[in-house]
């Protein structure tokens, strides 16, 4: 239960939400989306922390000695975080590709100009 991790992850999420809702430049919006993802990833990894535990990997020595009672941190959130990192990378890639093509078509990446569909 690391308080600092949780506080920082909530700050990152809020910072990312600020960037998405307040910044006009579309690249800054994409960066905001990324920051939200990193905040959530930090949160997930911190959820699995057990105080005093080691990395959740069995070595051969431990297996041969039958040490089934080694105290691990929870491996499931680490798996979730890996998946989430990959998803975050895909979102950023696709969003940036869209921004590049929007620039070619609209000649601007200001959110006030990229709003031909409205009403």
């Amino acid at each position: 239960m690391i308080i600092v991790n949780y506080c920082v992850s909530i700050m990152l999420i809020c910072l990312g939400l600020y960037a998405v809702t307040m910044k006009k430049d579309l690249i800054k919006v994409v960066i905001g989306l990324g920051i939200i993802d990193y905040g959530v990833n930090l949160f997930i990894v911190s959820v699995g922390f057990n105080d005093g535990g080691t990395a959740p990997i069995y070595t051969i020595a431990e297996l041969l000695n039958g040490a089934a009672s080694t105290y691990f941190v929870d491996p499931v959130p680490q798996a979730l975080t890996l998946t989430s990192i990959v998803i975050g990378a895909c979102v950023d890639a696709m969003a940036l590709a869209l921004v590049v093509m929007i620039y070619r078509k609209y000649h601007s990446i200001n959110a006030d100009d990229v709003r031909r569909i409205r009403g």
């Binding site: 919006v29 929007i102 609209y106 569909i117």
Partner: peptide, 17 residues
């Protein structure tokens, strides 16, 4: 089309997060 896709991605991504 691009504009609609970008907004869908941004808002959908917030929802997924």
């Amino acid at each position: 089309a691009l504009e609609g896709a970008f907004k869908y991605l941004a808002l959908g991504s917030i929802g997924s997060s």
